[in-house]
Design a protein around this nucleic acid. Structure first.
Lengths: 227, 227
DNA sequence: GTCAACATTCTTGTATGCAAGAAGTCGGCT
DNA sequence: AGCCGACTTCTTGCATACAAGAATGTTGAC
């Protein structure tokens, strides 16, 4: 819980976006938000800019901030990158992890086992995060961990949905098991491969299909500013 | 050339950081910057926040912004991630690139050839960027392209240094040649592999060495906020 | 002489006010 | 009657003012 107004606002608005309180495509009026949270427009503006940097909203000059809509195409691209980064983290973890890292992974894995066995989706969702963070940490790459966490955060709502809707708990846990084995065996390639397919559930075919599909239809739904 | 004050300020300060005008570790006083650029403190603050999001500065609550110092450890981590992302972009490009993409890559490659032959480091530096961007585009992953560009931007000063100091022009161009071949052959794995080693010049050994070295020495120089 | 506590000053964080640009509306012209 | 243009209004963007917290310097006591 940050004592800073801006941080609080940022989390609040982000939460609103994630929970669907602020619908994609809707305008976020600075004055309205300022009134809503009982603060001035200045911290609201700063919070919106931070959210813009995180990719949650898009700020068009003189035209206000709108909640970005993540289409299926873009969503797949994000999962694709996530898979690659997680794969790298796993590969590095397999090569570099210390005994303490192994222990942390083992504990997180055991927790996942419990939640999966009881079918507690919410608990598993949390434990799953802990598990993946343990792998990030074991990669001993601070920067990579940061990147992974940022993307993870951005994909959080969709990930949650994924787990809920498709009831992937058992298969997810089974995949974790293989990943843990591969890391403990020090097999970087196998770890990377398993983690990639763990994230991107569908095969490469699907990604290619959508990519070429977009190639033909064109007219990207949102022109994202590179900044 | 953005008409926005904040954007201009952001670029200006970022440039100052890149060129060493603002030294790593030094404080960036809001009032000083405001006076220096003849604007108010408000846009300066917003620019600093954007730079914080990009990882150029670190803002500590109530204690101002300081230029982040990128140590060798972190630098290597960033190159490592960059290599992985470029590898992914290349792999996707090999599978998905259209005729227009191939043409763009060919043209950029030819430009690199000219600059390399003439030994024009600055020109090659620019052409190299165009070349890599062509690959990003050919990956047909907007999100991946954005990530690559952001990291590229962050690593820009170091990359330039790398090219200058080590006189890597000929070998860099030779590597490009292999990459282009692999993409045109549609060989995703080979493209990915070549691009990875193109970015991370040193082998994996070095990364492991530094990682374990950090493991022993500990005391991370800067505690980066994940945000 | 040194250390600690208090006060002062300086900087950041937030609020408000003002100006400029964009969108919606109304009126005139074709 | 429809379309183009000016006007009004609303919102953003920037500046300034004020408050609160941190750093530093000074003074007093041990």
């Amino acid at each position: 819980m940050p004592v800073n107004t801006v941080q609080t606002l940022r989390d609040e608005i982000e939460n609103g976006i994630v929970t669907g309180d602020f619908k994609p495509g809707s305008r976020l009026d600075e004055t309205q938000l300022a009134n809503r949270y009982g603060v001035s427009r200045t911290p609201v503006r700063e919070a919106l800019m931070q959210l813009s940097a995180s990719g949650f909203v898009e700020i068009r000059p003189r035209r206000g901030a709108i909640v970005v809509e993540i289409g299926p195409q873009r969503l797949y691209e994000m999962f694709e990158v996530m898979a690659e980064l997680e794969g790298l983290a796993g590969a590095l973890a397999a090569r570099r992890c210390s005994e303490a890292d192994r222990e942390a992974i083992r504990i997180a894995h055991t927790q996942c086992a419990k939640s999966a066995a009881n079918g507690e989706t919410d608990a598993y969702y949390y434990d799953n995060e802990v598990f993946h963070r343990a792998i990030y940490k074991a990669s001993h790459s601070q920067f990579l961990a940061e990147q992974c966490l940022a993307l993870h955060r951005r994909l959080r709502p969709f990930r949650r949905l994924q787990l809920r809707v498709r009831n992937r708990l058992p298969s997810s846990y089974a995949e974790h098991d293989g990943i843990v084995q591969a890391i403990f065996d020090g097999d970087a390639d196998r770890t990377s491969s398993l983690l990639r397919s763990h994230i991107v559930v569908q095969g490469d075919r699907f990604s290619d299909l959508i990519a070429t599909l977009k190639l033909h239809t064109e007219t990207p739904p949102q022109e994202k500013r590179i900044s």
